[in-house]
Amino acid sequence: MELISMDFLSRDRLSECTMQTPPELAIGSEDPGDALLSAVLALPETLRQPMYLYYYEKFNTLEIAEVLQIEPVNVRNRMSRARKKLNIMLGKKVGALRDGRRK
């Protein structure tokens, strides 16, 4: 797999159309996807990168670990922390986030 630059995920490198509206404004939006994307983009970089790659770029945890050069367990831990933050930020607006595990 080709390694990609993570610069595209740094907050200051994201295009204006990707950034959309700030999470506090998007929460009032009718589209829960807008609020979720804005909230994901508002996360600290270490939490934003795995979430964006997993949910929006459809990478699996092993691919994310390779790209970020961290252990897969760290990817899962970061995603768990990010989901908790997103649930606090968005409350019941978006509902429970899928954690990627099979039940």
Results as ranks from 00 to 15, higher is better:
Ile4Gly: 02
Phe8Gly: 11
Leu9His: 01
Ser10Gly: 01
Ser10Arg: 13
Asp12Cys: 06
Arg13Met: 10
Cys17Pro: 06
Thr18Gly: 01
Met19Trp: 12
Met19Ala: 12
Pro22Phe: 14
Pro22Thr: 07
Glu24Val: 14
Leu25Arg: 15
Pro32Arg: 12
Asp34Leu: 15
Asp34Phe: 12
Ala35Trp: 06
Ala35Lys: 04
Leu36Asp: 05
Leu37Tyr: 05
Leu37Cys: 04
Ser38Tyr: 06
Ala39Pro: 04
Ala42Val: 02
Leu43Met: 08
Glu45Gly: 11
Glu45Leu: 12
Thr46Glu: 11
Leu47Asn: 05
Gln49Gly: 03
Pro50Ile: 02
Met51Thr: 00
Tyr52Ile: 03
Tyr55Ile: 03
Tyr56Gln: 10
Asn60Tyr: 02
Asn60Pro: 05
Ile64His: 04
Glu71Asp: 15
Val75Asp: 01
Asn77Met: 15
Ser80Asp: 09
Ser80Lys: 04
Arg81Met: 06
Ala82Arg: 03
Arg83Leu: 08
Lys84Cys: 03
Lys84His: 09
Lys85Gly: 07
Leu86Arg: 02
Leu86His: 01
Leu90Tyr: 10
Lys93Cys: 09
Ala96Val: 15
Arg98Pro: 02
Asp99Lys: 00
Arg101Leu: 11
Arg101Pro: 05
Arg101Thr: 12
Arg102Asn: 11
Arg102Cys: 13
Arg102Lys: 15
